[in-house]
Amino acid sequence: MSYKIRTYGDPVLKSKALKVADVDGKIIRLVDDMFDTLVESGNGIALAAPQIGVQKQVVVWDLGDNPMAIINPEVVESDGEWAYDEGCLSIPGLYVEMIRPKTVLVRGVDLQGEIIEIESDELEARMFQHEIDHLNGVLMFDRLEGDQRAEALAEYRRIEEQTAAEAAAARRNPLRRLRSS
């Protein structure tokens, strides 16, 4: 089963997720559903449970080689800096250059309930930091300051307005929708 991805403005995205006490059947089903949702998103590499409205510390990701999940993840070490245009399934269409640590050591629990540590760099390190931010109720906009934040918010509003206008036009002209499929 897949879920609708919550988008900017939804209060669930600003709430801190609860730690998972036991990796049980419910958590396994949640992980499966999160993978379904991630695949259906079409362009995401990772998803945190709050992005589907579930306030649990669960993250799934697929960087193309081996889909994985981690429970109660935390960054325990970080180093360096890496600038990258970061996007978010909960802020669709917006990409903003952000500087984050280049390498991280993440500790959490796997689906067997065992403690794991993952050393990562660049894209994978950024993904962990971004998804752990979601678990703490932090969005990309919260990491931006001053003019960069104002510009990102304005661009996102422009994207939302354009998307709404395109949806309204498609509703008014169903043949247009069929031709573009």
Rank of each mutant, 00 (worst) to 15 (best):
G53W: 01
E145P: 00
V59F: 06
A165P: 01
R172V: 09
S90W: 02
I27N: 05
I116L: 07
Y84P: 00
E122C: 09
A48L: 04
D62C: 03
A21C: 00
T103K: 13
V54W: 03
S181M: 14
N136G: 11
N43T: 13
I99H: 06
K26S: 14
Q51F: 08
R176I: 06
A49N: 11
Q162P: 02
E97K: 15
A49L: 11
L18H: 08
W82K: 00
R177D: 12
V59I: 15
D133E: 05
M127L: 15
S78Q: 13
A21L: 13
V96W: 00
R158I: 02
S120G: 15
D33W: 00
Q55W: 00
L89A: 02
E97R: 15
Y3A: 04
I115D: 08
A152T: 07
E97F: 03
I27E: 03
E119L: 09
V59C: 04
T103E: 13
A169T: 07
V31T: 09
D79Q: 11
L63Q: 04
R29F: 00
H130I: 08
M68H: 07
E122F: 14
A152Y: 08
V76H: 03
I5V: 14
V20H: 02
V20L: 04
L111Q: 10
I91G: 04
Y95V: 00
I70S: 07
I159H: 11
L123S: 03
G9W: 10
P73M: 05
R179G: 11
W61M: 13
Q112H: 13
M98F: 01
M68L: 09
E74Q: 14
R172E: 15
Q55D: 01
Q148V: 13
E122I: 05
G42Q: 04
G113W: 11
A150Y: 12
L94R: 08
T37K: 01
M127F: 11
E119M: 09
V104Y: 05
K14F: 04
E166I: 06
V54T: 09
D10L: 06
N136C: 09
S41T: 06
E77K: 13
K26V: 05
T103F: 02
D110Y: 06
I132W: 05
R126N: 13
N72C: 01
L94T: 08
D62Y: 02
V12T: 04
E114I: 02
D79Y: 12
V31C: 10
D142Q: 09
L89F: 03
Y156L: 11
L38N: 06
I70C: 08
M1R: 04
Q162R: 15
M127W: 07
T163Q: 13
E166H: 06
R171Q: 15
R143K: 15
K56Y: 08
L123H: 10
N173T: 10
E74M: 12
R143W: 10
A17N: 09
L30F: 02
E74L: 09
F35I: 04
A17L: 08
D62K: 01
D33M: 02
V31S: 05
N66L: 10
P92R: 05
